[in-house]
């Protein structure tokens, strides 16, 4: 069937919407993040951790919010990346950027291999398989004491200055700039992917995998692709953590790591990318606050936060804000029409 292209060209509005140009809010977000370096000099170590958590949550959002794949074991790749960077630095190669690349490659490779196990069956099976694999990886790291230092963690990590110039300092200045820079670079990549044909396909798969295959899309293969990419990004986040703290322990594989990233994504609003970063920041602030109030039992309140989120705040903070915003702009009238 041939569609006649001679009809009037589509309005430029179509092109603008599909191109997803940068909005001023987005630019403001990054300017603000950069300005934090000057505005919050005492918070920098914490903000660096938030940027790392944000990158990890971003990788989970790519998987969950964009492609609709749920994982309870994404920390496996975070941990693998962390240990790759740690082992490299420990064995005498402390150059940070190449460490990140190596971590991303190894974690991505592991993600690629395990994707064939993960991406079958229902949501429930996926949850269990991802959980099982992450526990398996953690247990392996725990047993391979000669390589990983076991439960003591990896000692003696010496990371060189970035570009051979900027050394990591005690005030977290370098760490923050470095972490934010890497987060921004990865964000650009993810944003690009999400608004590409491949990204649109992923959103389609999330919406309706059955129809996607009727449209000629090999759903499994696309998911292998995004799972690999998400694993690589998680690995980079893990490597960042190792490099900025000069330490890595088995905690990086933990179940709470995986589930907190899920919470961060949902808290901020799944599928919005920014939501993942904001959610990770909020969760970190919340944990720091709780840890100050009840140092031993802060997990209780985090648990409560999980439950409240699940029950009352679907769509997340950002989702809520966006809904409110569009509602206000459209004028409060216009009730949404829904199909039977």
């Amino acid at each position: 069937m041939i569609v006649e292209a001679k009809s009037a060209a589509p309005p430029t509005e179509d092109e603008r919407r599909l191109r997803a140009p940068w909005r001023s809010v987005e630019i403001a977000f990054w300017v603000l993040a950069a300005a934090a370096y000057l505005l919050l000099p005492h918070q920098l170590p914490l903000l660096a951790q938030a940027a790392i958590g944000g990158l990890f949550a971003l990788s989970v959002d790519l998987l969950l919010g964009i492609a609709g794949v749920m994982s309870l074991g994404h920390a496996a790749f975070f941990g693998i990346g962390g240990y790759v960077a740690g082992l490299l630095a420990q064995s005498g190669w402390g150059e940070p950027l190449s460490g990140l690349v190596a971590a991303g490659l190894v974690a991505g490779g592991c993600g690629f291999l395990s994707s064939f196990l993960v991406l079958r069956g229902s949501d429930l099976t996926r949850l269990m398989v991802t959980l099982g694999i992450s526990l398996l990886v953690m247990e392996a790291a725990n047993r391979m004491t000669w390589l990983t230092g076991g439960s003591d963690g990896l000692q003696g990590i010496d990371v060189w200055p970035i570009f051979g110039v900027w050394e990591f300092d005690l005030y977290g200045r370098t760490a923050y700039v470095y972490a934010l820079g890497v987060l921004f670079a990865c964000f650009l990549l993810v944003r690009r992917v999400v608004h590409s044909p491949f990204g649109l396909t992923l959103r389609g798969i999330k919406g309706n995998p059955r129809r996607m295959s009727a449209l000629g899309t090999p759903v499994g293969r696309r998911l292998v692709g995004v799972y690999t990419l998400a694993a690589a990004l998680a690995g980079i986040a893990g490597a960042l953590l190792t490099q900025t703290t000069q330490f890595v322990s088995l905690d990086v594989f933990g179940f709470d790591k995986s589930s907190e990233a899920l919470l961060a994504v949902v808290l901020g609003g799944a599928g919005t990318l920014y939501g993942a970063i904001v959610g990770a920041l909020m969760l970190m602030e919340l944990e720091t606050l709780l840890a100050r109030i009840t140092p031993e039992y802060w997990q209780f309140w985090i648990g409560i936060a999980f439950m409240a989120q699940a029950l009352y705040a679907r769509g997340g903070i950002l989702g809520f804000t966006v809904r409110l915003w569009t509602r206000l702009r459209r004028g409060v009238a216009a009730p949404s029409r829904t199909a039977p």
Binding site: M70, F300, I304, F306, M307, A308, Q309, A310
Partner: peptide, 12 residues
């Protein structure tokens, strides 16, 4: 949502 809720219950 089920995962989040029950995970939270476990932590709490």
């Amino acid at each position: 949502e089920q995962v989040l809720f029950t995970t939270g219950l476990v932590f709490a």
